[in-house]
Computed example of a mutant assay.
Amino acid sequence: MFILLLTYVKPLSEIDRLIPPHVEYLEKNYAAGTFLFSGRREPRTGGVIIARAGSRAEVKAIIAEDPFLIEGAAEYEIVEFHPSKTAPDLDAYREP
Rank of each mutant, 00 (worst) to 15 (best):
V59L: 15
A74V: 02
F68P: 01
I50N: 02
F68W: 08
Y93N: 00
L36M: 11
T86G: 08
G46E: 13
L26P: 10
A32D: 03
P20K: 07
I63S: 00
R44F: 01
R40N: 13
T7C: 09
A73M: 07
F35E: 00
L26C: 13
D16S: 15
S55D: 03
E58Q: 07
S84L: 15
F81G: 08
Y76V: 02
G47L: 03
R17G: 07
H82D: 10
F2L: 05
E95Y: 09
F81D: 00
G39I: 09
G54D: 02
P11K: 05
Y8F: 15
L4E: 10
A64D: 12
H82T: 12
F2R: 03
L4H: 02
I62E: 02
A64V: 12
R41I: 11
T86V: 07
A61W: 04
E95F: 15
D66Q: 05
P96I: 07
S84Y: 13
I78C: 06
I50M: 09
E80S: 10
L90A: 14
P43A: 05
F37A: 11
E42Y: 15
G39V: 04
L90P: 13
R17W: 07
S38P: 06
E95H: 14
V23L: 14
F68Y: 14
E42T: 13
E80P: 00
F37L: 12
E42D: 14
I49P: 04
S55E: 06
K85P: 10
Y25L: 07
E27S: 13
E42M: 10
A51D: 02
P20C: 10
V79A: 11
F81P: 00
T7N: 07
V48N: 09
L69V: 09
K28I: 05
P11R: 08
L6E: 02
Y93A: 01
Y30C: 11
A32F: 01
K85R: 14
T86D: 11
A87I: 12
S38A: 05
A74R: 05
A61N: 15
S55W: 15
E14F: 09
A87P: 14
A73F: 08
F68D: 03
